[in-house]
Structures are given as C-alpha cells and as structure tokens.
Design a protein around this nucleic acid. Structure first.
Lengths: 157, 157
DNA sequence: TTGCTCCTCACGTCACGTGAGGTGGC
DNA sequence: TTGCTCCTCACGTCACGTGAGGTGGC
C-alpha cells in the first residue's frame, strides 16, 4: 500500500505535528511515541497518522498532566490485549480526558468571572478621585463604597 | 491597626495560599512576591491579602505562562507610578488575563468536541464485529463505514 | 528547656533547549 | 561531491522537590 510507504523524516514530521526534534526524541526516550522505523544510518521515519498521537500528548500536557501519567493513559496496547480490554482502556483514556477538560473549563470560567469583576471595579477606580497609588493603602477597602476590593484587584494593588 | 499586625509565618501563609514553602521562596527569589517583613532571625512574615497574589500567579501559570512573563504582567508598581499609568497597567494585565482565558476555553471546547466524537465512534466499535486488535490495521479506516477514524481514536489505536 | 517551625545551602528532577562534533541521503 | 538533514552525547535551564545541618520563637 502507498500509505505505509509514506513515511516522514523527523524534521517534516515535527512540522506536521507542530513540535520539534528534541521533543520527539525525548518522547521516544520516555516511551511515549516511537518512529515507525529507522534507516540503516539511524534516521527516524514516522507515519503521518502518528501526528495525532503527538497532538494528544500536547493536549494532555496543557491540561497539566506529567508525561508519566500521559504514558499510562495512552498505553492501551499492553497485555492483556484482547478486544474487550483494549476498547475499555481506550474508553477509560477518553473519559479521563473529557473529565479533565470539563474540570479545567469550569475552573477557567470561574477565573473569567473574577477577571470581569476586577475590570468592572477598575472602571470605577478610573473615574474616581481617590488615588490608589498614594501611600501604602491603595484604597483597600474602596474609599467610595467601603467594600473590599475584588481579590484580583487586591492581588495587583 | 490590627490588620497590619495580622502577619503569617510562611507555613500558615502557604496553607492559606494553597502552596508550599519552597514555591514561596522561589517566587521571592525571582521577584514575584516578597514577605511584608522579616523577623530579626530571618523568619518571613506575610500579609493575608497577599494570598490573592499567589493565587493569581498560580492561575497564570496554569494558563501556560512562564514566571518571567507573569512577573512583567503583575509588576504594576514600577516607575512611572502616577495614577494614570498605574491603573492602565492594571487594566492591561487584566485584559491580557481575560484574553488568555478566552483563548484557552475555546481551545478546550474544540478539544472537548473531538473527545466526544471519539467516544461516539468508540461506541460503534464496541458493538462491531471487526477487531481493531487483529494484526496492524486496527480498522483504519473503519471496516464498516470506510470512513477514517476521528483523529483522537487514530491516536490511540 | 523542649518541640515545632523556620533558615540557608545544595544537589536532584522533569521536560526540554542548545550547541559540539560527526555522519546519512537524495 | 555538495548541502542539508539527521545522529548521539552532554551540559544548561526552568520551576521547583528534597534532604542536611543549623537556629528562631512561643
């Protein structure tokens, strides 16, 4: 088949996968992804489709997982490799991935709300006569409302 | 004032801020956050309100920012420190934070969609007679529909 | 004085970055 | 044969982790 012949050297594969040579070699070293084959001179040759695996690893890293944890998740081909346990491992990995994404998204939405509150309060500060840069007090609490500042503004003031 | 006297030793402050001693000392070393004061014996004493700053740093790290970039963002007290430039730096930091969150959330929502597609296809695989663990082919493309697998399934198969 | 907490080195680790010096492939 | 890409060390870096050995604070 033509598909099996379509192998890429590490440079082209890195470009396709949106990464670099060092990272691919390191992933190989820690058992995350290996080239489909090697030339006699030691050149690594990758399948185009393996770029999806690299993308998955990147996505899981961005969710805060360590490479060892990722390796456990994506190693679905370990014994016993009967059809049922293989598919259930794939399902477990996908469910865990989904769980991580959902948790991260809701954490980010909370964060986003806090940033919005801070920006709203900052709008009031900009139209206010009190100066947060006088002395050490920085309008904590707000000299106009007497209320404490949003946590994020407090972090920056 | 009582508030200025309410200082915490590093252990209690770390617990409050959800971090640990080493991280706080490292943040201090790279100029991210310093204790409000030190005792004669060198003990660090932190203000409770500075825990919000630690939380902000954590949140920005989780968004993928390096500590040096975070330091640039949160250093709003550098010269010139007139009211206008101070407030505009705070605004810039908050806007950048919001931008990063929005970008991350939409990336995660795309990811989430891909995971859902993979799980849906996997459901078909579980009720299918073809075995993706036979030989090297792993049903690429799907033996029933002839269509390529979702990228995420391809990454795991 | 006794515990507990804190202090400062300082070496280790994870996930790469960055050359050095040498060889493979069309 | 000429470039360009690739190879394997191997040391450097970032953001801490983890003791070692010693001292501060109620």
């Amino acid at each position: 088949m033509a598909a099996t012949a379509e192998l890429l050297k590490i440079g082209d594969f890195a470009r396709l996968a949106g990464t670099n040579l060092r990272t691919l070699r390191y992933y190989e070293e820690v058992g995350l992804i290996a080239p489909a084959s090697r030339s006699g001179g030691g050149f690594r040759y990758y399948r185009r489709s393996d770029a999806h695996r690299v993308a998955l690893i990147h996505d899981l890293q961005a969710l805060g997982l360590a490479l060892e944890r990722i390796r456990e998740l994506v190693r679905v081909h370990e014994a016993p490799v009967d059809r049922a346990s293989f598919l259930s491992r794939v399902r477990a990995a996908l469910c865990e991935h989904a769980r991580l994404i959902d948790a991260k998204v809701s954490a980010l939405e909370e964060q986003r709300g806090r940033v919005a509150s801070a920006l709203a309060k900052l709008g009031q500060c900009e139209g206010c006569v009190h100066s947060p840069t006088d002395g050490e007090e920085h309008c904590r609490p707000c000299a106009r409302t007497g209320e404490p500042l949003p946590d994020l503004l407090s972090a920056l003031f």
